[in-house]
Structures are given as C-alpha cells and as structure tokens.
C-alpha cells in the first residue's frame, strides 16, 4: 500500500540525510508522558529543531525489564500520570498535526500491545503517523504476529541485536529487519555508564557483514564524548537515559544536551 510505506521510508530518509551530511544520525529516546504529556508535546518539536534525526517515544510499562533506574522511574512516573498506550499514539497524532516531520518510533514492551490487540494497535499507530516500533522483550521467534501486522501497515518493526548474539542468528535477524538495526551496545539494561563497552568496532563490523540497513548503537551511551566515539562506528547513536534525566529539568536542559550531542557527533574532515 502506497501510504503504508511511509514509516519505513521516513526512517530510511532520516539515516540517508545524516549519511549525506557525513555524520551519524542522532536518535533521541524520551519516555512519553514524563514528566508530563504536555512536556512531551513541547519536547519533540524542540528536539527536531535542535537537530535530532529520529525520536523514539517510550511507551511506559509497569515492568520494564530491559531498563535501568532512570527510565524505570520515568515509566513509573508517566504511568502515575495516567499515560496509556492509546494516549501515546494520540500524542503522535497531535505532534504530526503540529507539524513534526521527523521519524517517530514507539518503543515499548509487548504486553500492552497484546492487551490492545496487535492488529488494532498497529493500525492506530499507522493512522497516527507512527513510523516504526521497537519492542525490547519480543525476540524474532515470538514476533510473528507483530511482524505480519507491521508489514501489512508499512511500519518498521526494528529489531534489537546484542553483543552476544551469535553471527548466524544476527544474519537471520538482519534478513527480516526493516528500518534500522538497533545494536544494544553492551549487555545489561539502559542507563549511563562510565565508558563505552569494549569491542564495539568488531561488533559493529559483524553487524555490517549481516545487514545493509543502517546500524544504530544504543544502551549505555550518555555523554557527548561517548556519542562522538559511537558515531565514528555506527550510522546512528541512541541517547535515552541522559535525555530522560534532563527532561525533568525542563526543555532548555534537553535542548542544550541535544545541541552538544550534535556538535560532538559532527565528523571532523
């Protein structure tokens, strides 16, 4: 369907634009509804202005097993304020109505999608202007239904790969992937670390051998210096917890960090 390819295309275009600028794409994660839904509505257009290439909106879940303390707290806070999956999708529709054009991807756990109904949820996402989904607790073996639904509606179901994913499995994941490959930079949960993981270059090279899709590194990358290092290896860098932490300080704090990240990630000639 013609309209349906929009999600995948918008994501591909964002990475292509960054590549044409000879830089890695800056992917920003925000927990939707944290510190409030109004804040998210303000923050996303600001992110676009400040130079983010793609935004992941975290759909809060009661039991976020892949997340560290910062995003756990944000999820809990967002839930306390009544943020539901439907509200997150409405938020995307509002952002689109307000003129936000950058790719928007929802990142959330599988149970809320199941509870909504896989087909209904994906349809609502497409109608609202969501471009893709990232579901951290849904490995490809279990993703059949969601994969089919997102394919039918032209959304990218972006798979995660980990440093301990064997090469053969990595190739299999890459084969069915759309949008980009999300490379979890290190074992463990989301959240800042003192330094980047060892062996990132080899890991990214392994993923390159398996896929022609853009590769984005995320989990544990928080400072501009770390983003700069990661940007030398991958096609995109995801910054999550560090942004979520700043979100409480207000939009100016977030904007400052995003501009710093963009500057740090610019490639020296």
């Amino acid at each position: 369907m013609a309209e349906g390819v929009t999600g995948e295309r918008r994501i591909a275009a964002a990475f292509a634009t960054a590549a044409a600028d000879r830089r890695a794409a800056l992917v920003i994660y925000l927990t939707a509804g944290w510190p409030s839904l109004e804040a998210t509505l303000t923050l996303v257009p600001m992110l676009e202005r400040a130079g983010a290439d793609l935004v992941e909106l975290g759909v809060p879940f009661s039991d976020p097993i892949a997340d560290g303390p910062i995003i756990q707290r944000a999820s809990y806070g967002a839930l306390q304020q009544g943020t539901t999956p439907r509200r997150c999708v409405e938020l995307v529709a509002q952002l689109r109505a307000g003129g936000v054009r950058l790719p928007l991807v929802l990142m959330g756990y599988y149970n809320p999608i199941l509870a909504w109904g896989v087909g209904d949820c994906v349809r609502a996402c497409r109608e609202a202007g969501v471009d893709g989904l990232i579901v951290p607790d849904l490995p490809p073996e279990e993703a059949g239904e969601l994969d089919g639904a997102t394919r039918a509606d032209g959304l990218a179901l972006i798979p995660l790969v980990a440093p301990n994913t064997p090469q053969e499995r990595l190739a299999g994941i890459a084969e069915g992937a759309r949008g980009f490959l999300y490379l979890v930079s290190r074992p463990g949960t989301t959240g800042p670390r003192d330094r980047l993981a060892d062996g990132l270059a080899d890991y990214v090279a392994r993923a390159r051998r398996a896929s022609r899709l853009p590769l984005a590194l995320g989990f544990g990358i928080s400072s501009p210096a770390q983003a700069r290092q990661a940007a030398r290896l991958a096609d995109g860098v995801v910054i999550g917890s560090a942004i979520v932490e700043q979100a409480v300080q207000g939009p100016e704090a977030v904007e400052g960090l995003v501009r710093e990240l963009r500057t740090a990630m610019a490639r020296e000639e």
Binding site: D137, L138, P139, P159, A162, R169, V184, G188
Partner: peptide, 8 residues
C-alpha cells in the same frame, strides 16, 4: 519473551 541479550 526476553530482551535479545538474554537469548544466548
């Protein structure tokens, strides 16, 4: 239904 890191 686990994150990819736990599959291996």
């Amino acid at each position: 239904f686990v994150p990819e890191t736990l599959i291996a």
